[in-house]
Amino acid sequence: MTGIDAATDTLLEVARSPLGLLGVTLGGYQAGRWLQRRTNDHSLAQPVLVAIVVAGVAITLLDVDYPDYRAATELVAFWLGPATVALAIPLHAQADRLRGFVVPLLVAIVLGAVTSITSAVLLARWLGADRALEETLATKAATTPVAIGLTESLGGIPPLAAVFALAIGIVGAVAGPALLHVLRVHDRRARGLALGAVSHGVGASRMLRENETEGAFAGLSMGLSALAISVVLPILALWLF
């Protein structure tokens, strides 16, 4: 019995180690990719969503504090930067599709940023949210690092901003393509532009699986939306807050 207990303690110690937690995270993502293939790319089978569920269950059962988990998986966070920059590769291959589309694209990005910020703040206010939550929700359409930085500068709650950004990204990746189909948006560029602006990295990844043009424009939209929100939000904050 003592030997079994010792082996169990050793396994738990390994699972709680940085390498073990990193393995859980990567394993959860691979499980999501496997599920995605098995379900023929079903919209609900998002690898990021599966990885979140697996990691959440694991750290709960292992009694690991989130700061410890975050520190253990810093390598994943580091490689998100190069992975995001790599989205420019499919866009370069689709550069000719930008002809005649630059002005509508920029107008749509700016209007989308204004609408996203204003609607989130006013809806939160109507529902009785306090100012800190309003400031946190205002950045939800930006990529996670940008949302955290902007929320911090406004005085909101940065960790909650990261949750909102990730949640809206997953929801958009799951429901976005079907909604665009219902709305009869068939232009590949417009579809990618719309989902990239709302769901940033997760949405861009989903659109790359749908179509290379959609994925390329989703990546472009993600970057431009983050830039537009960074510029527009301080101006709108003078009126909203």
Rank of each mutant, 00 (worst) to 15 (best):
L35R: 01
V85W: 11
L35P: 03
L105S: 04
G32S: 08
V114A: 01
A55G: 02
F78G: 05
L62N: 04
S116M: 02
L75I: 15
T39D: 00
G23W: 07
S116Q: 02
I117A: 01
V107R: 14
I89G: 11
T73C: 01
R37D: 09
L19T: 11
R16V: 09
P82E: 15
H92M: 14
T60Y: 14
A95Q: 11
F101Q: 08
G28I: 05
A58F: 06
R38S: 10
Y66G: 05
A108P: 05
Q94A: 10
P104G: 04
A77L: 14
S17P: 13
S17I: 10
Q36M: 09
F101A: 12
T25A: 13
W34L: 09
V107T: 11
S116W: 00
D65G: 13
D96M: 04
A71W: 04
A108H: 05
L21A: 10
S119T: 12
A51E: 01
S116H: 00
A88R: 10
G81Y: 12
R99N: 14
A83E: 09
A72T: 06
H42Y: 07
L106K: 03
L35I: 03
G32Q: 03
R16D: 04
L105V: 13
V53I: 14
R33H: 03
Q46Y: 09
E74K: 13
R97I: 14
I52S: 12
S116I: 00
R38E: 00
A58L: 06
A71R: 10
A120W: 02
A77W: 15
S17E: 12
L49N: 04
A45Y: 01
Y66N: 07
I117C: 02
I59T: 03
T84V: 11
G20W: 12
A113V: 13
A72P: 03
Y29F: 07
A108T: 03
Y66E: 06
R16N: 11
P67W: 06
H42Q: 10
